[in-house]
């Protein structure tokens, strides 16, 4: 096992972790501010990916595709917030789960109706295609490296937005005491729509960026959604910092255990059973990680409340 392979896999883990962060950040923000558990977040990821694939197919421009993904997901987010989600803020979690599950059904079948059941493909832009040589002579796909950088930039942008702007102050105040900031003259329902649309746009961006390395298809969002839930449980609900650390932990664990566990098992047993046992256990690794965190800190690494 060479160092180059290890570094490549660590980068792959970072890349998937950073994309997971975009999903988890929106989810945790929406939960922190509005107290809403949103299963339809995966649908917004899918909306972003489909919008990007459709626009890229029409115009051939990746930049336009990304803009379309952001706009479509934010718009879809704002629309469902106004029509449905708004009625759920005072409901219990059961109602939120069911209503957002209903939204998943509507989004998934609606997308299948419009685009058909076959996957679409979104090409990596020419400027970012091909490998790049990293220090130490490691060849790594430029696009994946760009994803890591883009994800980190969005993370920094989100931090600035929340810690350094007026909207951010309102969001943080909304997390602490919604009645009080409403009494201070902040239009709370506009703020909620804004936060929801922001979370949706992050999901849509992730969908479009990942859509270029995977196929764009109906149902692509939910596996990512569930991974994002694992991230949030590990990081602590409502904490953006927790979402970031949790996403990197999950991304790295998922990638590294999947690659290295079969290799490690081969030291002790035959190759074929080692590969199958290794991949079976590796598929469970992040959930085992989640269980360990739950035993150690039931409210997550950075979760204050429970």
């Amino acid at each position: 096992m060479s160092t180059i392979l290890i570094i490549e896999q660590v980068l792959n883990g970072l890349q998937s972790g950073v994309m997971l962060f975009l999903m988890a950040a929106g989810l945790t923000l929406i939960f922190g501010v509005m107290g809403l558990i949103n299963l339809a977040h995966g649908s917004l990821y899918m909306v972003g990916a489909f919008a990007a694939a459709a626009v890229a197919g029409l115009t051939g421009s990746f930049v336009l595709a990304l803009i379309a993904a952001l706009a479509a997901a934010a718009l879809a987010g704002a629309v469902i917030e106004t029509l449905v989600i708004r009625r759920l803020y005072d409901s219990d979690h059961l109602d939120q789960v069911l209503a957002t599950f209903a939204l998943i059904l509507i989004f998934s079948e609606g997308t299948r109706w419009v685009f058909g059941s076959f996957p679409l493909f979104l090409d990596i832009p020419d400027a970012l295609s091909g490998p790049v040589t990293l220090p130490g002579g490691i060849e790594y796909p430029l696009y994946r490296l760009a994803l890591i950088v883009a994800g980190l930039l969005v993370g920094v942008g989100l931090w600035v937005l929340i810690e350094r702007t007026r909207i951010g102050i309102q969001i943080r105040a909304g997390e602490n005491d919604r009645e009080m900031i409403a009494a201070l003259g902040v239009d709370i329902s506009r703020l909620y729509t804004l936060v929801f649309a922001l979370g949706a746009a992050l999901a849509g961006l992730a969908g479009a960026l990942v859509g270029a390395i995977q196929s764009v298809q109906v149902g692509m969002g939910e596996p990512v959604l569930i991974l994002a839930f694992v991230v949030i449980v590990i990081g602590g609900i409502g904490s953006i910092k927790g979402a970031f650390i949790g996403a990197l932990l999950v991304g790295l664990t998922d990638t590294l255990v999947g690659i290295f566990l079969p290799e490690v098992l081969k030291l002790f047993m035959d190759a074929a059973p080692a590969t199958s046992a290794g991949s079976a256990i590796a598929s469970m690794s992040i959930y085992i990680l989640m269980s360990l965190v739950l035993i150690w800190r039931p409210s997550g690494l950075f979760g204050a409340r429970i």
Binding site: F31, H93, I232, V233, I237, L294, P298, S299, G300, I306
Partner: peptide, 8 residues
């Protein structure tokens, strides 16, 4: 845990 954590 309880609430949303339990669901997730």
């Amino acid at each position: 845990t309880t609430g949303a954590y339990f669901i997730m």
